[in-house]
């Protein structure tokens, strides 16, 4: 993994962080689809090692925000810098330092697990690819399924392979869009362990979730998005879980179901 682009990206990270100390920075993000405004002047900044859980009801703009941050979508106005790279102009360089995991696995069903990772590894120019694939397959507990086709995998196994896909190039930053969707309890626990490992390794993570308990358990910062506005952002050390739920339901206008 000691490739030239990684050294370049690390230099850029250092440059950007020496200035503001932020690895993710978004300023004045606005996104409109026709007449509908999905994001309204979002400002967001995260330092290296931060784990932001982004909560919000359906249609709040969470996925749109994640897609803009990982440069899958351009904002109508505003700017995003990821590890010093401008998301509007340095997409190729930016993509080298991020890993994206969503409820959509981005895997090719007709290919084996090994072939999927081989494809993505080649796209990222990963050195010693065979060894790296074995390593990440081991990390997600799928070493015994290297040559099995993805279409034979359960939802949980596909999601684990999706994690292996996202970490094949050892990214600095992870964007997770509803990563727990479709996972059974066992899969959720396994995935939480993987996320904790990333967090402990100092990776920067932005995760959208509907599940307040799960999100709060893992994150170092929590934020609430409502109708395209970032209405709340706080450090986890200053949050009491029950109070946060109250704040969430108050800010989003949702009602907690009676127990």
């Amino acid at each position: 993994m000691d490739s030239s682009w990684q050294r370049q990206s690390c230099q850029s990270v250092r440059q950007s962080m020496s200035k503001d100390n932020y690895i993710i920075e978004a300023r004045g993000l606005v996104k409109k689809f026709g007449f509908k405004t999905v994001l309204r002047k979002i400002d967001l900044s995260l330092k290296k090692g931060d784990f932001l859980a982004l909560f919000g009801p359906n249609g709040a703009g969470k996925t749109t925000l994640i897609q803009i941050l990982c440069s899958l979508m351009l904002p109508t106005s505003g700017n995003v810098w990821i590890a010093g790279f401008d998301a509007g102009y340095d997409r190729e360089a930016l993509h080298k330092v991020i890993g994206v995991i969503s409820h959509n696995t981005f895997l090719y069903n007709n290919l084996s697990a090994y072939e999927n990772l081989k494809f993505y590894g080649r796209m990222y120019k990963v050195k010693n690819l065979r060894e790296r694939i074995e390593e990440v397959m081991g990390l997600v507990g799928l070493r015994g399924y290297m040559n099995d086709h993805v279409q034979t995998f359960s939802r949980g196994m596909q999601q684990r392979l999706s994690v292996a896909r996202a970490i094949i190039h050892d990214p600095l930053i992870f964007f997770l869009d509803e990563p727990f969707t479709g996972l059974d309890q066992h899969g959720v626990e396994d995935f939480k362990q993987i996320l904790k490992k990333f967090r402990d390794q100092g990776k920067t993570i932005v995760m959208t979730s509907h599940d307040l308990d799960r999100g709060l358990e893992l994150c170092t910062q929590a934020a609430i998005l409502k109708s395209g506005n970032l209405v709340y952002k706080e450090d986890i050390s200053k949050i009491i879980q029950d109070d946060f739920k109250e704040v969430y339901f108050k800010l989003t206008g949702e009602q907690a179901l009676p127990v």
Partner: peptide, 14 residues
């Protein structure tokens, strides 16, 4: 259809 287009677009290639 298979939802892999975003995966492709996220790769570091123009």
């Amino acid at each position: 259809d298979r939802g892999t287009l975003h995966g492709l677009l996220l790769c570091p290639i123009s």
